[in-house]
Design a protein around this nucleic acid. Sequence first.
DNA 1: ATTACTTTGTAACATAGGTTACGATGAGGT
DNA 2: ACCTCATCGTAACCTATGTTACAAAGTAAT
Lengths: 205, 205
Amino acid sequence: MRLEDCRLLKNTRVIIEEIKIMEYPHNTIIALEGDISTKIGIVLEGKILVKVNSLGGKNFTMSVLETGQIFGDVLIYAPQDHSYPGNLVTQGNTRIAFLNNSDFEKYLFNDNDLLRNFLSLLSDKAYNMNLKSKLLSQDTVRDKILFFLQQQKRVQKNNRIFLHMTKEELANILFVQRPSLSRELGKMKEEGLIDYDRKTITILK
Amino acid sequence: MRLEDCRLLKNTRVIIEEIKIMEYPHNTIIALEGDISTKIGIVLEGKILVKVNSLGGKNFTMSVLETGQIFGDVLIYAPQDHSYPGNLVTQGNTRIAFLNNSDFEKYLFNDNDLLRNFLSLLSDKAYNMNLKSKLLSQDTVRDKILFFLQQQKRVQKNNRIFLHMTKEELANILFVQRPSLSRELGKMKEEGLIDYDRKTITILK
DNA sequence: ATTACTTTGTAACATAGGTTACGATGAGGT
DNA sequence: ACCTCATCGTAACCTATGTTACAAAGTAAT
């Protein structure tokens, strides 16, 4: 993705020279949980996973930053705590554009388009975090699956849902163990609620 | 709280006449999950709980809006979905100031202090949502308790943590059943990790 | 002090789902 | 076609925790 096409900068007057672009290979930790943030980052290529270690030692993916999304954003105005909520880990070769908080702020207050873009991105992020919370608050494996299917049905506008990931990854997202996921999918298939194969799940009822 | 003292409007030039103030008794539903939001709300007195029904029929409190906090904020710039993520329910007699999205936006782009306040409030909210996610992702009752204690220790700056709520409410926040909470607290006391009574929990190790 | 109600602890029971292990299936490379 | 490795389903076992019920302790009102 070209810098000038990303959601944050589209139609804005931000001068590109003040932006530094970095490239990282797959699976690189670019920041640790608790690190202080001084820059806004824009994902130009690849993905970033925000991973958190729970007290029990397991780690879970709190959120995924796709191409075009930004990070370090909400931290600028945090009254006390400017630190990242989790480890930032690249997935695939990843290019990131960095912009100093102070530079960014200077533009933000003088460019209504930038402000609009910024608020829209924040809005998205809040929406996704809400979804994550709702998913985590479903208390059986089946409910988590159903919640996921519901949501994907809305996104993909189809009862046949393409997974685009392994069952292992899906289990991870749903925050359950893979064999538990398999078991429950099996039951649901038996009950005629769904059908599924390696790549898709189809909602029957 | 006086309108001009709330975090959003402090030091700003927003004209008070455009704001409508409403008052609701305890336990009033002021919006339903999915309702479209057209206004920014500011909590002047009382609290608002954001409650979500899970698929299993249980309901959990996604977040609590304390005096001075705002809602409907992130929805202004949501690209698609402008609807509330949960039911908004008052707790105690509650006074709310409402400001039309369009009025708000008009001010937002012309008042740097308002913008700064707004971003700071959004930042806070994101921080709290992160905490909630991390809490929900702890996978044993004990880890949830420990996470809560850790967090409260930081806030209260003391190993003796005052609960300010019943065990029932605490169980609710931790997203576990009350008897499960009791059982685990008992075990932890036995192991010498904590001590507790009706109103406090003390971290011993 | 008595009563009524709320809050809390405890115990017994049932079960969902974590854990581990293994075999079957599928995909990619030579 | 064959080999290798990743992915997936399945089964057996076990434990944490939800569930229900009840009694003890605390609180507030009369």
